[in-house]
């Protein structure tokens, strides 16, 4: 309670904070309206979970109503919800429009467009398989990404540091690196004992290239005066690499890690579709094969959430490690 007062005092120049939250009431009424439309209008296309969908919309509307009344007591959480007000109003509108276009009026051709309750049904009924697919994908992605990122980091530092290593690795990097990792797919699947290890290799390869190149350019671009200073203070070669070159190159390394993450997503999906028979890519393929478009959209949404969360995690890590920098890009 007192927290709310303090944040109100120390906050923005909004002097008199309104007791109530009008946008919240608007959002709540749109949610409740959508719930009513969903529950009361008859379905043109019969899908089981209409009432559950209406209930969820109603519950969200009710929660927003409470938030609208209680917002002066919610502190910083309340402020975050307030910020999302316009989105929370437009989302139920979009949901209602989607509901009308699919389940209620059947304007969009089936089976290519799923209705909201169709998606809900997938989540409620097929969640074990979806969950397992997510775990498979995550495991493949993270193990491949970790190997690729570690190898890329080491290769990049070595390239930037040692002329001899640069002499041998640079031409290989230039020839092999720009090749899309997916081009290795046919070879990888017969060269590796299992499709799982082949896919891990491909994800690692896709990650490796951008991480290597950017780490290398980061290390090569380190201000030479940094080395002079450390050398006059008695630094060894190891110290120069680990305590000067690497920290100075870290901002670039994170750009490489970010690009590598993007590359690893696309390789992951292709590898799962063509090789491993597990994971979200495989689920998508499978759903398409059975013309289960609801499952496909459900899996796409989960995949989007997974990828976005991983990028968010990476940026959070970067912000923590590079706290000394000012003014970095926000995700």
């Amino acid at each position: 309670m007192s927290g709310a007062v303090i944040s109100g005092l120390s906050g923005s120049p909004v002097a008199d904070r309104p007791r109530l939250w009008p946008v919240g009431f608007l959002a709540a009424s749109v949610w409740i309206g959508t719930a009513a439309v969903t529950a009361l209008l008859p379905d043109r296309i019969e899908v089981g979970r209409t009432q559950e969908l209406a209930l969820i919309a109603l519950a969200l509307g009710g929660a927003l109503l409470l938030a609208g009344l209680a917002t002066p007591w919610l502190g910083t959480a309340g402020q975050k919800i307030r910020k999302a007000g316009p989105w929370l109003t437009v989302l139920p509108l979009a949901l209602g429009g989607w509901e009308m276009a699919t389940a209620k009026l059947a304007l969009l051709p089936l089976p290519f467009f799923a209705s909201p309750q169709g998606l809900l049904e997938v989540y409620l009924e097929d969640w074990p398989r979806l969950g397992e697919s997510v775990l498979h994908s995550l495991w493949l992605l993270l193990s491949g990404y970790a190997i690729g990122a570690a190898a890329g980091f080491v290769a990049g530092v070595a390239l930037g540091w040692s002329r001899a290593i640069g002499y041998w690795v640079h031409p290989v990097l230039r020839l092999i690196g720009p090749l899309p990792a997916t081009a290795w797919l046919p070879i990888a699947f017969f060269a590796f004992p299992t499709s799982g290890s082949a896919s891990t290799f491909l994800v690692a390869l896709a990650t490796w290239f951008p991480v290597t190149v950017l780490t290398w350019s980061g290390v090569a671009g380190v201000n030479k005066a940094y080395y002079d200073i450390a050398r006059t203070l008695g630094a060894s070669q190891t110290f120069l690499v680990l305590k000067v070159a690497v920290p100075a190159a870290l901002p670039q390394v994170f750009v490489g890690l970010f690009m590598g993450l993007g590359a690893s997503f696309s390789v992951l999906v292709v590898a799962e579709m063509l090789g491993v028979k597990a994971g979200l890519g495989w689920y998508l393929q499978w759903a398409q094969g059975w013309a289960a478009y609801g499952n496909m959209y459900a899996a796409l949404l989960v995949m989007a959430l997974m990828c976005s969360s991983l990028v968010t995690l990476l940026f959070k890590g970067r912000d923590r490690v590079l706290a000394w920098q000012k003014g970095t890009v926000r995700w």
Partner: peptide, 18 residues
């Protein structure tokens, strides 16, 4: 170079990450 002879550079060149 040796730490018994220390040079204070014209430009301070501090390590920005420290």
């Amino acid at each position: 170079p040796d730490p018994s002879r220390v040079l204070v550079f014209q430009d301070p060149t501090l390590y920005p990450w420290r």
